[in-house]
Amino acid sequence: MIIENLTVRFGAFTAVDDVTLEVPPGAIVGLVGESGSGKSTLARAVAGLVPYTGEITGGDPRRIQMVFQDPYASLDPRMTVGASVAEGLRVPRAARRAEAERLLSLVSLPVSLAGRYPRELSGGQRQRVAIARALGAEPELLVADEITSALDVSVQGAVLNLVRSLRAELGLSMLFISHNLAVVRYVSDVVAVMHRGRLVEVGATEEVVGAPKDDYTRSLLRAVPRLGRA
């Protein structure tokens, strides 16, 4: 899927400025930048949640799903986990329970959680439910906006490993947004660096990390000492 010349304005303020970025089939593109860089606004625009100018081509924009930073806010507290996952499924009603259970298993959750409510789950489990719910819509592109930043460090790694396994198993295409370059490096094939609403550098992950061309990218690397020495 290709994002072409996408711009988002809020009155006189330009939050995203003429961004063009390709997410190849089966690839994870990591979008990284500091708070206020415009990366989450770009994510919401791609998902159709804020108005924009420009185009999204190479796929069906209606088949873009988004997973948010706070899974508790994106799940209906009155619905069980199974009902939430089943809500958007494109299968006959009689097959929804089995499909919801398959999706829970796909994100490494026990089927027994289907009857529970979001408040009864941990943050990591809720995030997995949100991912399962998004996968149920059979997306051409999954937009993941800071999906590990609200989780404990001990849980983040497990969710990142899940992202990698889903890409390997499903050939999932993903736009993965984070302020943490170490996280982006771990899951992404391509890194796009965003600063003040514009892309300042795009390239293969190890090329961007190993030989950054832009001063802003170098500043992000210095903020993560282990990456800076890689």
Rank of each mutant, 00 (worst) to 15 (best):
P71I: 12
V163F: 15
E206Q: 10
A45L: 00
A83H: 10
F68Q: 12
R126V: 09
L21V: 09
A158R: 15
S35N: 01
D152F: 10
G124E: 02
V16K: 06
R133N: 02
P110S: 01
A15K: 04
R133G: 06
T80Q: 13
I131E: 07
L6Y: 06
E138M: 05
R119G: 15
T7C: 09
S84Q: 12
A137V: 14
R93L: 13
L227S: 06
P118Q: 00
G58T: 07
A47D: 02
I56S: 03
L151F: 09
A100E: 01
G38T: 00
L89F: 07
A130L: 09
I28F: 13
L172M: 11
E4Q: 13
V202C: 14
V209F: 02
L199V: 11
S108R: 03
R167G: 01
D145I: 08
G197M: 07
R196M: 12
S108H: 14
V19Y: 08
Q156W: 14
V107W: 04
D60N: 15
G171L: 13
I2Y: 11
A43L: 03
L220S: 10
S154Y: 08
L75E: 05
R126Q: 09
I64T: 14
R196P: 05
V129Q: 09
D18Q: 12
D70N: 14
Y186C: 00
A73R: 09
G123K: 09
L141P: 09
P77D: 11
L141S: 10
G58C: 03
L160I: 10
A130T: 01
P51N: 13
A211W: 04
S219L: 11
A230E: 08
S149T: 11
L103I: 01
L181R: 12
L227N: 06
V16M: 01
T41V: 15
A15S: 11
S122M: 07
V183E: 12
S84K: 09
D18K: 12
V153P: 12
S37Y: 02
E201I: 04
E146A: 12
R116E: 00
E4G: 04
E22I: 03
E140T: 03
L160Q: 11
V111F: 00
Y186Q: 15
R126C: 10
I131W: 04
A230V: 05
V184Q: 02
F176D: 13
G33E: 00
V16A: 06
E55V: 00
A168H: 13
L227Y: 05
M79C: 10
D17G: 05
D215V: 15
L103V: 06
T14Q: 12
E22P: 00
G88S: 12
R128K: 09
R222Q: 15
P77H: 10
L21T: 11
S173E: 02
E22K: 02
L42Y: 10
T20Y: 14
D189K: 10
E4F: 01
